[in-house]
Simulated scan of single mutants.
Amino acid sequence: MNGDDVERWFGEYLAAFEACGRGERETDSLLAYYGVPLLVTTDAGFLALTSGDAVVGAVRQQIDGMRDAAYDHTATLDAEVTVLNAASALYRATFSRRRGDGSEVSRLTASYLVTDGREGRRISVLAAHSA
């Protein structure tokens, strides 16, 4: 795995996520970027999403909230890639989700374990950082 490739791939994922947030794509299209199972950890707890339907359901909650908030795009405030080995890397970033007028919807810092397996690159772990 190469850090520049991971950054490019994550940029493609972020563009797809943004399109979902604006209602231009369906949420299930993000299964091209999420692994199944997907492990998610937040202050609210830990989830092991073991089916595509469970992954889409969890992501759909975020997407619905973004659409309700008139979301337009995400600004990446900082990002760092750490290659762990030939099959995985950590992508850590702080994101600002914004409306079309530039006002902030929300801010999130998260770490993603990006893995390269049989189906290609996928996010296998999503860890939201405490505020």
Results as ranks from 00 to 15, higher is better:
N2H: 05
N2Q: 12
D5A: 15
V6A: 05
R8L: 02
W9N: 04
W9C: 06
F10V: 13
G11Y: 01
Y13G: 06
Y13A: 07
Y13D: 05
A19R: 13
A19W: 03
R22G: 06
R22A: 02
G23Y: 02
E24Q: 10
R25W: 01
L30W: 06
L31W: 05
L31Q: 03
A32E: 15
Y33C: 03
Y34E: 12
G35R: 07
T41C: 07
T41G: 07
A44M: 10
A44R: 15
A44W: 10
F46G: 01
L47F: 10
T50H: 10
V55Q: 07
V59R: 06
I63G: 00
R67M: 06
D68Q: 12
A70C: 05
Y71S: 01
D72R: 09
T74R: 04
L77V: 12
L84R: 12
A86K: 08
A86P: 07
S96V: 08
G102Y: 03
S103T: 14
R107D: 03
T109V: 03
V114I: 15
T115P: 00
T115Y: 00
G120P: 05
R122L: 09
I123H: 05
V125E: 06
V125C: 02
L126M: 11
A128L: 12
H129E: 15
S130F: 11
